[in-house]
Design a binder for these strands. Structure first.
Lengths: 184, 184
DNA sequence: GCCCTCATGTAATATGTTACATGATTTG
DNA sequence: CAAATCATGTAACATATTACATGAGGGC
């Protein structure tokens, strides 16, 4: 089976939800996958073209002469197959998360304790904001009475985000303490 | 102050440790920064050239006619300044970690429970391996009696890796349980 | 003699972001 | 009627990986 890149699989997957246009895909990513994935329009539209060229989806264009094109995509049987095959493949490796704060901290001795403290505090604040966002999304999903077939899985990914973020916040607290102990 | 990319700052920082050559930089990254940063040779050598062109480091080449070039780099005063300035800048944003497992899990309803379980188990195994690696590196550093000025900061970054990895493992356990509960 | 580590570098390719261009439709 | 949102798309640029090319020196 011909391999595609992650962006392609992500879009194939999103096309199985109610999102049918490039614009809707972008929204879905920004709203529901933003804690572990993101794609820009610069990738979405070219990839959608590729997907159609490869016969993984059909496009229906509502382009009368007058109004502008609006394209709705729908997976073909082949598209579904490619997606399912990818889902089954074991993931190659856990990605190395590039973390700018840790990079700076690694070279911390070239900086005053005070400034290092500030950086960690900033980071903690950002993590807290993130955590709050996850909680809000989670509540939004659970309140929605009619649970879709996807709901269960979406909550799993949110739970992951929350747990990892929380661990990060705790690390900030511990690190801040240690930095302050050496302050005197 | 002229901005450079993250790769450049990472290399500037590493040049403040004992690593003076492209090869040594690569080793340092693979051994000590691998849990939050990585760079390939394809980036290192061109970036080193840039760093010299910009006057951020000097290069001393031990290139007699006979033996192959070995280049040793040393930061200039300007290089140190650029590094310090970057260290002080607050980080723009926490990066979105692209997580392939979560992406697959998000589309989990298109797959049997059994296969989803397998994926999460695989992921857990990888996290456990990673955790063990961190512990080993940590021990290596703490055993080393003569503690360098950097040691403290390096342990901070390792602690982060351990905490976040541990949270991931706990999430795996919780998710596996939930998936199995619905098995019957 | 062969393999491993040391050591540097480039070219092709892949991937991704940002800025730009365009215009309809809805909402206040 | 102005602003926001809906909607598609491209081009320039930035970043990063992979494969390749080359060769010295040391240990088995």
């Amino acid at each position: 089976m011909k391999p595609y890149n992650h962006t392609t699989y992500a879009i194939l997957g999103i096309l199985t939800t109610d999102c049918r246009s490039g614009y809707a895909i972008k929204q879905m990513i920004d709203q529901s996958l933003n804690h572990f994935w993101k794609i820009s329009y610069g990738q979405i539209y070219p990839t959608l073209k590729l997907i159609v060229d490869e016969g993984l989806a059909n496009v229906r264009s509502t382009a009368d002469d007058s109004r502008p094109a609006k394209n709705e995509y729908e997976l073909t049987a082949k598209g579904h197959e490619v997606l399912k095959n990818w889902l089954e493949e074991p993931i190659e490796q856990i990605p190395v998360e590039r973390n700018e704060l840790l990079l700076k901290l690694f070279f911390g001795r070239h900086q005053s304790n005070e400034k290092t403290l500030f950086q960690v505090e900033e980071y903690k604040r950002k993590l807290e904001t993130r955590y709050a966002t996850y909680t809000a999304i989670e509540e939004g999903i659970t309140k929605h009475k009619e649970k879709g077939a996807d709901t269960k899985y979406w909550l799993f990914t949110l739970d992951y985000g929350k747990r990892v973020t929380e661990a990060g916040i705790e690390w900030c607290n511990s690190t801040l303490e240690q930095l302050m102990d050496e302050e005197e």
